[in-house]
Design a protein around this nucleic acid. Structure first.
Length: 618
RNA sequence: GCGCCCGUAGCUCAGGGGAUAGAGCAUCUGCCUUCUAAGCAGAAAGUCGCAGGUUCGAAUCCUGCCGGGCGUACCA
């Protein structure tokens, strides 16, 4: 059976070989043949700019001579036209010298400008790619088993704080990466790490314990009242009002949050029950969100548990000479790592134990990393966390290295930029957030309205929910992770054009065309049908699927998949518009249904990688 | 100050050394007796932040500058 992938990569090598030997016959200087796909709208095939590279090479001596004579700029200007002429001539000669006998599947070698182009026989190539997809089905593009265990830690929400759209970018991204690794053949451990312990918890609990004091203090504060209890307490604590009653309440809050923090570790204390209850409420809410988003975790860690491991870790690092007790200066009394002493001065220093003996977030991070390496034997460990933490992770990984973990080299901070509001940074501290719940509900409502308008027969609620979530996920995933997302309600909730529902809609349409269709690769391969432009374009895009997936994995860039799927779907829509399927007959109908089936499969796989659901009809 | 990231159409973004820089939104013109109009066809819209450099070839790589975001805690 013909396997497209092998055919394509084998073909590339053959083209290179043939081009090289043609160069030899023409006595052109030896030069590696760089081969790329021909830029999309032109044609299906491969191209090399070798003639231009050779022209540059052939004129190099002349260039040196002219530069001496006229100076660099003038020489360049003078040579430009000649280089281009020469490259056209070289391309022409090469196109004539190349033999197609050794290149099955190539219909034509042609010089165009300074390029040498190899055009595929579209009848052959399109059959190959379609049959490759149909044969492998949902496994099309799947990688061979890698025998490597990858841990992907993502989400890491704090209990007692808002879960907002900024966290959503993280979940959606982390999930897509985990999917990509799995599809790439890796064993994946999806890991979550809940921030259920610490000063932010104490602050929220204080608010729960003293709603009347909080409300009283708020009467003296300007501005809107944040939604979460945590943010309300934070606002009180950071207020700079000098109203005497407010100052009094603020002092109480400060004193008592410290006490509450201490009591969290004591299961007999008054606040312990409250902590347990509120913590559980939030954890339940998080699980509701994950389930709604179709995200699952293999491992879940809690700060409150990791916390218990920290003091031993600090002692161990002291003993190993990685950390030291600071004797003087502003860090006197702390246990810290001074990176300058380890040849990494640019990392500054990191405190691991406060002078009052309590530990910090980073200490827990180190303890957790040890657990990950020791208990789960991971070969690679990814931390999906916002870019604001990049210095922090460099420090943490450096400490792991100094500590002697060889696997520290395999730790990687997968950073992404924040989701910002037009008004500035989203901060649960300041209460300036777009909460997850309200956002998603709004999206669902809008989608439901549309679904009802369109008269979706069976289950408008289900479809609306799928549409809303797909739109949201796509909006986050299609943007490069290095780019800040400026959150805009209207844009995030758009169901038109380059958006998630575009893919869903095309999928639903393609399903209609496949009713009763039975794939038959044998028959397809025996077909002699010359595909039309739109069909070629769809096949060509389909043929890029595997490259796209492996590149996305390589670069940890799910946005490549999102953008590819949009291109693929556009090609399908174009095909849908110009090539009737069910109205065609016999072989043409069969060929087109095969192509639609190929598209349908690739779209399902790609959308699955992004964690997006596609409704059967809409 | 130093470090990381970003700057492409009015707006939001593709484009990771190659041919005439592409989409969506918004604006304008058309297309529902024809496999679903959450769609399609078309128009208009660009000094790819600026200046140098490398290269046969630069939006893409390098350097400097300008503008913006983030970080530089005994916070998480």
């Amino acid at each position: 059976m013909v396997n497209n992938h092998i055919l394509m990569s084998g073909l590339r090598a053959a083209i290179r070989r043939e081009t090289e030997s043609a160069c030899g016959r023409l006595r052109l200087p030896g030069h590696p043949v760089s081969l790329r796909k021909i830029a999309p709208p032109r044609a299906w095939g491969y191209t090399t700019a070798l003639p231009q590279e050779l022209a540059g090479l052939l004129l190099a001596e002349e260039q040196v001579r002219l530069e001496d004579e006229l100076g660099k700029k003038a020489a360049k200007k003078k040579l430009r036209a000649r280089t281009s002429e020469l490259s056209v001539q070289v391309a022409k000669n090469l196109a004539e010298a190349v033999s197609l006998d050794a290149l099955p599947g190539v219909a034509l070698a042609e010089a165009e400008g300074g390029y040498l182009n190899f055009y595929l026989d579209t009848a052959v190539a399109s059959r190959d790619i379609i049959s490759a997809v149909l044969e492998r089905g949902r496994d099309f593009g799947r990688g061979e088993p890698q025998n490597e265990r990858v841990m992907v830690e993502f989400s890491q929400p704090n209990t007692h704080k808002d879960f907002h759209v900024g966290h959503l970018r993280n979940v959606v991204l982390g999930n897509a990466l985990a999917n990509l690794f799995e599809f790439g053949g890796f064993e994946v451990l999806r890991t979550n790490y809940y921030g259920d312990h610490g000063i932010h918890v104490a602050k929220a609990l204080w608010g729960h314990l003293h709603p009347e004091l909080l409300a009283e203090a708020e009467a003296f504060l300007n501005g809107t009242v944040p939604q979460s209890v945590y943010a309300r307490v934070e606002r009180l604590l950071t207020s700079d009002s000098d109203n005497s009653r407010l100052v009094e309440i603020r002092a109480i809050a400060e004193r008592e949050t410290g006490q509450i923090l201490q009591q969290l570790d004591d299961s007999s204390s008054d606040v312990y029950g409250l902590w347990q209850r509120t913590r559980q409420e939030d954890l339940n809410a998080f699980r509701g969100i994950y389930s709604e988003l179709g995200v699952r975790f293999d491992l879940e860690f809690y700060e409150s548990e990791v916390e218990k491991l920290t003091s031993a870790i600090v002692d161990e690092l002291l003993e190993a000479g990685v950390a030291v007790v600071e004797a003087e200066g502003e860090y006197a009394g702390t246990v810290a790592v001074d990176f300058a002493a380890h040849g990494a001065a640019e990392l500054g220093s990191m405190v691991l134990r406060r002078s009052d003996g309590t530990t910090l977030y980073q200490t827990k991070e180190l303890a957790l990393a040890k657990v990950k390496f020791d208990d789960y034997k991971v070969d690679r460990s990814l931390y999906v966390v916002g870019s604001e933490q990049s210095l922090y992770f460099r420090q943490v990984f450096e400490i792991l290295k100094l500590w002697g973990f060889a696997a520290a080299e395999k730790c990687q901070h997968v950073s992404y930029e924040l989701v910002q509001l037009a008004s500035g940074k989203m901060s649960s501290r300041e209460g300036t957030v777009v909460p997850y719940r309200g956002f998603v509900e709004e999206a669902k409502e809008r989608a439901l309205l549309l679904a009802r308008e369109r008269g979706i027969s069976s289950t408008p609620e289900t479809v609306a929910s799928q549409v809303a979530l797909c739109a949201i996920k796509y909006a986050f995933l299609r943007v490069d992770t290095n780019k800040t997302i400026l959150f805009d309600w209207e844009q995030a909730l758009s169901f038109d054009g380059n958006a998630g529902p575009y893919l869903q809609y095309a999928y639903a349409r393609s399903n209609k065309l496949l009713a009763g269709f039975d794939p038959d690769v044998q028959r397809l391969m025996q077909l002699s049908y010359t595909p039309q432009v739109a069909e070629v374009e769809l096949c060509r895009t389909l043929a890029d699927f595997c490259d796209c997936v492996s590149q996305a994995l390589d670069m940890l860039a799910p946005n490549l998949i999102a953008n590819y799927l949009y291109d693929l779907t556009r090609a399908f829509t174009d095909f849908y518009q110009s090539c009737p399927v069910l109205k065609a007959e016999n072989d043409v109908r069969f060929y087109r249904q095969s192509l639609v089936a190929g598209f349908n499969t690739a779209l399902v796989i790609g959308a699955g990688l992004l964690g997006m659901e596609l409704p059967e009809e809409m």
